[in-house]
Structure formats: C-alpha cells, structure tokens
C-alpha cells in the first residue's frame, strides 16, 4: 500500500503526553479519538472512530466521563444526547509557530448565521464544477455510498 502524506491540523495537535496526564487525573474517563489524530494518541484510545462513531460511543459506553480528541463542535451533539455525562476536550500542543487550533477548526468556524443568511439571500457561494469533473468524481463517491449501503 502506498500512502500519500497529509494531515488534519486540528487532530494533529492532540498531545499524547498531556492526554496521559489528564487520563491519570480522571481515571473514570474514557478516551474517544478520531483517527486523524497522531498514532501515539490513537494508541491510548478506548474508542477510535469517525465523528459519528464517537458520538455513538458517547451514548452507548457505560462511562459517565469522556476525554474527546476531535473538533470541539461535536460537544453540541454529545451533550444533547447525554445530558448527564461530562465531556472534556483533549489537550493539544502547537505543531507549528504559524498557527494553533486548540481543538477548533479555523475553517469550520468561518461559517456563521450571517454568511449562511447571505448565501441564501443572494445565491452567493455557489459551487460550480466542470461537467467532466463531476462525471469522473461521481464514480468513486457512488462506490463509497453503495458500499456503505451494503455493509451497514
């Protein structure tokens, strides 16, 4: 298998050493980790999974307390689904002197109610793709959705 190298700058900041210390201070907490995190962080996880899978785990696991290594926006749904449980954001360490996310995706947080309103009102921010690109990109996306349907 040949792998391309890139990373999610939000998940890459979750820090294994700081998480170990936080786990030690909260022995009753389980660690939920998104797989875009670093391997050393994944190695510590009680559950590793996509955002939806982590949300599901927060509901089904017996634990009442979780340390969560994914973007902070997920706390809205986790807290809504489990009002009696405690969620702690996993600690981070800057990976570059040029930026620091601390559990928040800078681009996701560009969305707000004002620019949502503006896009709808003015039909602005419309995604336009060349028909040739759409045609070619549809195949791998459809395969993924078909696979999901068959295997869920």
């Amino acid at each position: 298998m040949l792998l391309w190298n890139a990373c999610c700058i939000v998940h890459a900041e979750f820090d294994a050493e700081k998480i170990k210390a936080l786990k030690a201070a909260n022995p009753d907490a389980e660690l939920l980790v998104h797989p875009e995190s670093q391997p050393e962080v994944i190695a510590l996880a009680d559950v590793t999974g996509s955002t939806s899978q982590l949300l599901q785990a927060s509901k089904t696991r017996q634990a009442k307390k979780f340390i969560v290594a994914t973007e902070s926006g997920i706390f809205y749904k986790m807290q809504q689904a489990c009002p009696d449980k405690t969620f702690i954001v996993a600690p981070t360490k800057a990976q570059s002197e040029l930026y620091q996310c601390e559990g928040n995706c800078p681009w996701m947080k560009m969305n707000n109610l004002q620019n949502l309103r503006d896009a709808l009102k003015n039909n602005s921010g419309e995604i336009r793709l060349e028909p040739g690109i759409i045609e070619k990109a549809l195949l791998p996306l459809s395969r993924m959705l078909e696979f999901r349907k068959k295997h869920s």
Binding site: S52, E71, G73, Y76, N111
Partner: peptide, 9 residues
Amino acid sequence: HYYTDPLIQ
C-alpha cells in the same frame, strides 16, 4: 457538519 458552530447545528 458536526464541527460547525452549535447555533448552525
């Protein structure tokens, strides 16, 4: 997406 502001969600 789950990562957007809770107000949007």
